[in-house]
Every structure is written in C-alpha cells, then in structure tokens.
Amino acid sequence: MTLDPHLVPLQLGGETLMLDGRGAVWWPERSTLIVADLHLAKAEAFAAQGRFLPPYDSRATLARLVELINAHRPDHVVSLGDGFHRRDGYDRLDAADRQQLDALGLVTRWTWLSGNHDPDAPNGHGASAPELQLGRLHLRHLPTPHPGQAEIAGHLHPKAALRVRGRRLARPCFVTDGQRLLLPALGTFTGGLDVWAPAIAGLFAGPFDVLLCGRDGRLRQLPGSRLEGARRVKVRQGGT
C-alpha cells in the first residue's frame, strides 16, 4: 500500500475503503472513485435570478475531480447524486467546462446516481441509476434511516466545527459509525450542514467519528464528542 498522505483507511460493512482528504472515497479493490454533491453549474442557476456569482465554480469543481482521477486512475467513478445543481445543468455549463467533463467521461466509466436536484444523469454521460449496489455496500443519494446493510450516502454536505485556541474552525467532513458513511460535498459553491444538526446527528444511534478535510487535503480524525456543539446537544437531550 502506498503512503499517500491524503488517504485514511476505513472499514465499512466489511469492505476496505480509503477516505481521501480531498473529499472523495477511493475503493482500490473495485478501482472505484466515489464523489458526492458536485452541484455543477450552480453559479449559473444564481445568475438566472440576477445574482452574478463568479462563473468559475464548475471549473474549480472539475479541477478537483481531475486531481482525484489523476491520483487514483479509477476504472469507475460514481457520483452520489446532485452532480448538477439543476436538471439542465449540463447544457448550462460553459463550453470549456463541458469539454472538460466530456473528456473525463472518456477516460473512465461513470455512474450518476439521482439526486434531489438532478433526477436524471446528463445525456450520453455514462449510466444513471437511482441507487447502486457495490460489493457489500449500498450507494445512494439520500441516507436511509434504518438501512439493512452498510451504506454510503451524500446529500447532507456534512461539516464540523471545533474550537482551537479561541478560533472556530469549520471544515467539510466525512461522518461514519462503521455502518454508514456520509461524504462531504465536493462542489465548490456548496455550503455545509453542521454534524450536530438533527438531520445528521439523528441518523446515528450511537457514537460516530468525524474526519475533517483540511485545506491541505489531509484528514484529521476526531470523535464527535470533541467537536463544537457536542455539549449543546447533550444539554438539550438531558433537558427533555
């Protein structure tokens, strides 16, 4: 095994995955790269409403994808849904960005799972599916409350904050309890939901681990109890 500083191994439902601090899952045994919530062409969607956000978000997101694909050379890339911010996102992409995405479609096989923003995969761009079973794992956009088997999901854009020397640091993160793995959003203009929000914390019956993606692309692993907001949740639970 290589000593890639970006990677941290994880056992999930009996499969061995590598979490990549740049915001993706690398599954060596199946040569599969898993990414979530790319939200391509999001700035365009805002521009249509009169807010001219810099039209470089897709470019930046694609650059991250290129880096990940170059690093792992996957045979298969799975997008866990919300690959595009809008259903017609592919057509709204800038011509250069569209070419870039087309090129990525030529170097590897793609599966686009349906998200709530983009129920359909872009035309002629690999397969699309509502969900996907790979090995002992179930891949889907929306996490299920009581999955029968281990799952990998997106949708929630998890983010965690901690306090170090008086400074509050918030970063996108992976969340897992060994049975479920939530991916951070890879898209450039994607906000995050704090891991203590009921939508995330409520998914896990027991303790869970959080792996923060540093700006340097490396992961920092912390138990949930160490994060900001942990005590707040306890106070509330104790009170009711």
Partner: peptide, 11 residues
C-alpha cells in the same frame, strides 16, 4: 499559524 496547524494541534 495556519488553520491546518491548529487542526493538528487539536489532534
């Protein structure tokens, strides 16, 4: 220090 160092320190 930069943010990442602070993260390391917490760890």
């Amino acid at each position: 220090s930069a943010l990442d160092d602070l993260l390391d320190e917490a760890v």
